[in-house]
Simulated scan of single mutants.
Amino acid sequence: MGTYRVWVDGRIILAGDDLDLTTVDPLSDDALRRLAGQLLSWERAPRGYTARQITFLQDDLAALQTALAIPVPPYPPGTRIRAHGVTDGTTSLGTTITTARDNTGNLHYVWRPDVYDLPGHPYRHHHIDHTLTSPERLVEPTLEGPDTAVDGPNAPAVLTYGGRIRAHEVEPIAGSAWPTIDSLLAARTAAHLPLADEELLVALRELTTTTRGPLGPAVNRPARPIHSFDVTLDPHSPELPASAFDWFRRDAATRPAFLTVTGDTVRILDAAHGFIDVRAAALQEALRRSDADLATLLARHSTVVLDGAESQLTKAALAAAHVPDITTPADGLSPPPPTAGDPDPPFELDF
């Protein structure tokens, strides 16, 4: 049997030692739901209660059970979820944004990981534009709060500012996602947090220390590199063999388009057109065309109907999928052959 205490506004309202947890993890969502069911016995039991206990049992218990109930799929926007990795056993916590279905009707969730909101993360201030997409089979609802990245195998080594407290007396509350020492120092300068002597500075990709100098604390250079392979926590890490996700900014007049890359195949997710799978080379050629040229090409195909809210990425993906000769230049002339070693012509996208 397990013991429990129910707190309301900082005070213990109910407590007991008769909660059966023999078949569930005491820290799991199921344990909380079992506790809510156990509290029903308090409501039915013929015993004397205080006024505060009566208020909780009559007014708050039903709301608590509703909040703990397992949501019915497809989960609505704002649902807390745990997403499992496609190729490994890693998991990440986040919140659902919307849903979509692929060409075979399978449900997918578009969601935002909690770590995107950590200080220093490049996607912290892009709450809609930057998301991930996971198939329904790899997503489950959870009651856990936001993931602060202070535990697990990918947790930063040091999370404290300064170095004047014994390590065993420190309880980490939330991590950060500054990728480099320079970005960390810039953030501290902006926040008016001065350096201290003999301080350990830790970022996602490197760490270093400070020493006492004639003009105050000095940062020791060069910083020691740290391996950074977490595509969610550090999506722009130079150590990632290939970007698993590529994201594009958008303006207020267009729908967001989400893109994933797997080998030579690119998958674009658009809320109206669903999933669009194309070859990377074809999409690259389509992206070199103007927005007006893409609209003209797509207008010739009765199978494609535009609603006017598509981003250029979505139009390029539709063109790559439906226009066989997309690699032919708009003026009909072939471009000159590239010189060995020449980079691809640059292009800027704003979605």
Rank of each mutant, 00 (worst) to 15 (best):
A149P: 01
G85P: 05
I128A: 14
R137P: 00
A174H: 12
A190H: 13
R137E: 14
A51K: 04
H130M: 05
V8Q: 11
R33C: 06
V139G: 00
V110P: 01
P46V: 13
T55C: 04
A149F: 04
H127T: 15
V278Y: 05
G94C: 08
R33S: 10
K315Q: 06
L259R: 00
A330C: 03
V139H: 00
T90E: 11
P46I: 12
H130R: 15
L233I: 13
T210D: 09
S302G: 07
A157M: 08
V8F: 10
A272I: 02
H236R: 15
N154A: 04
E285T: 05
N154L: 09
N103H: 00
L349V: 06
V261A: 14
P46Y: 13
K315R: 07
A15F: 09
D17S: 10
V72C: 07
A218M: 15
P217L: 14
S134L: 03
D325G: 04
I54E: 11
T50G: 12
D350E: 04
H130T: 04
S228W: 07
V139Q: 01
T55E: 15
V278N: 07
D246N: 12
R82G: 12
L240A: 10
R300H: 11
R205G: 06
G263W: 11
T210S: 11
L201C: 08
P46N: 14
A330Q: 02
T328S: 06
A196E: 12
I165T: 02
V6S: 00
D18V: 06
I12Q: 13
I128T: 15
T327F: 03
P336A: 14
G16W: 10
A63R: 12
T55K: 12
A299L: 05
T296N: 05
L215Q: 15
T90H: 06
P338W: 06
